[in-house]
Simulated assay, not measured.
Amino acid sequence: MLTVMFAPTVRARFPQLGGFTYLVALVFVVLLFASVLVHELAHGLVARSRGQQPREFVLTLWGGHTSFDGAASTPLTSALVGIAGPLANLVLAALAWALAQVVAPASLSALILYAAAFANAFVAGFNLIPGLPLDGGRVLEALVWAISKDRHRGTIVAGWAGRVVAVGVLAWALLLPLLQGRSPELFGVVWSALIGAFLWSGATAAVKGGRSQRAVAGLTVAAVGTPAVAVPHAGTVAQARAAAAAAGVHELVVVSPDGRPAAYVDLAALAAVPAEVAGTTPVTAVAVPLPYGAVVDGARTGRALLDDLARAGGMSPVVVAVLDGRVQALVRVTDVVAAIRS
């Protein structure tokens, strides 16, 4: 696609090339992708020098991206990693421009070198626009993070800035021709709409991600769990009801003789037991067994708590939180998901 797009430029300058026009255009596209690869490698090398391990480098029609095993630890690291890619493109642009000065001015080599210089300068300048998912958005995110001491606020602000950029790209394609007294070209509008949609998608994902990460950072058992009290496995329904009333809670966890949470009481089944037989009905008759390991530490918070809940939630949709050896709460996976989404 990019080769076909660049071919008319080559044909206009060198009509005598004939079928070789597309070969020359392909050479430029290969150089362009090489520039994108250098851009992404610059991100990765600077990140690794700052203790952040790159996991993969991806090239796409829209450019590329680098993913990491973890987030940057400081605003400075985030900013340096973000700006490294555009700086690499500026170096390539300067190198291509310098080489173009020493070749024949009207040659194919000069055309390719000038095109490479322009493309790299454009990639650098466009990526420095302050809005996610562009690199300039990473710098803006780091700046807000450094000022506010809140990483997630930086992500949300930079994401909203990216949405503004996305709208601006399409507005530029529509309004600039009108201001110049001509009609917008369909090709330019469609291409700008595609780029704007890509940027909007990335910016929206950043805003949602920032909000989700903020929710994760504030995650506590008290926020997502329901207070519960332990009852012995040999107890009766009447004793379980009395224990719940005394503790002022509704949820009940049945513990085994060694004190391990072994089941939780089904409240609907508990309520269905008639009062006249509650004293002789074992509480285990209205309990749902819990697999071994469906327990989390009630003192943990944030990402650590979420990781524990993910592990335990893989065994059971209901997990028991224990604090200092005592049953603290029941946590349902659906409540955790709802808390993060909200």
Rank of each mutant, 00 (worst) to 15 (best):
M1T: 11
L2F: 13
M5R: 11
A7Y: 03
R11D: 13
R11S: 14
A12P: 00
F14V: 02
G18H: 06
F28D: 02
F33W: 02
A42R: 00
Q53L: 13
G70P: 04
A84D: 12
A106F: 12
S107D: 11
L111R: 02
L113A: 04
G125E: 06
P130L: 09
L134Y: 09
G136R: 02
G154C: 03
G168W: 11
A173L: 06
A173P: 04
L179A: 15
A193R: 00
I195W: 09
G196Y: 08
A205Y: 06
V207M: 00
V207A: 00
A215W: 03
L219C: 06
A223Y: 04
A230H: 07
V231S: 06
H233M: 10
A238L: 14
A243E: 13
A245P: 00
V249G: 03
V253S: 06
V254H: 06
R260M: 12
A263K: 02
Y264Q: 02
V265C: 04
A271R: 13
V283R: 03
A285Q: 13
A285W: 08
V288Y: 00
L290V: 10
G293L: 10
A294L: 07
D297M: 10
L305H: 08
R311F: 07
G313E: 09
L323D: 12
R332G: 04
I340T: 07
